[in-house]
Write a protein that binds this DNA or RNA. Structure first.
Lengths: 118, 118
DNA sequence: CGGCATCCTTGGAGATACTG
DNA sequence: CAGTATCTCCAAGGATGCCG
């Protein structure tokens, strides 16, 4: 019964992912945060509110990619978005509590990097 | 001097990645660890030595993928590999100090997941 | 300024089959 | 058992252009 692809396949996750995220929330967390762009973007928001093109420059992502990443992050509750529709529109992004909750993770990564990166 | 693709382009990183990893080691760490499979595999090795097919079952990765992931991790110094060439060959993987150094990161992720997942 | 729409390229990863 | 080889597919992401 290793690879029974039951039609209860309503999730878009593979069964492997499902199995993993069931096991512990480390894996669940990794899967929710997922891509490098998400991490990098979240990390860039640590020091407070940023606007779209700031993030674009800071991360180096294309506007297309950044837009999609921010959409994802907002949908998942990691960031908040505040828009000013005045003359030149402005769009500000901040971390939610959920997003800010990742700071310890960043600190742990920072420590690790200090010891092991080059 | 934003996008001078100097022929000192011996790295395989894009300049965006380069810029990011220069900024801080959080991003550097994220880029080195990279894919979800690497994280999941490393995390599976926390509780000690595992062999190839154990990891294969535990992670759900295909042998092809797992093999490549382990190669990467070994090349980057995250895991050690010990082979026993007896009758049925056996191959054991363990975390190096560098790999084990990620445990605080896993703990931070675990904490975060406990608060924010599901 | 922010951000979609479109096109296109890449490689990450599954499935399968084969070897020492 | 522990991989390697091959084929294939799909999603992530860059480039560009346009629009409110």
């Amino acid at each position: 019964m290793t690879t029974q692809p039951t039609d209860a396949d309503t999730e878009e996750k593979t069964d492997a992912e499902q199995k993993n995220s069931d096991l512990c929330n480390v894996v669940g967390a990794v899967e929710e945060i997922g891509t490098e762009w998400k991490l990098i973007t979240l990390h860039n928001l640590r020091d407070g509110e940023k606007r779209f093109n700031e993030l674009k420059r800071a991360t180096g992502a294309s506007s297309y990619t950044l837009s999609r990443v921010l959409d994802d992050l907002e949908a998942e509750g990691f960031v908040d978005n505040r828009k000013e529709l005045e003359s030149p529109v402005a769009s500000y992004y901040t971390l939610t509590e959920k997003g800010a909750g990742l700071c310890p993770v960043f600190e742990a990564l920072d420590d690790w990097g200090a010891n092991w990166l080059e």
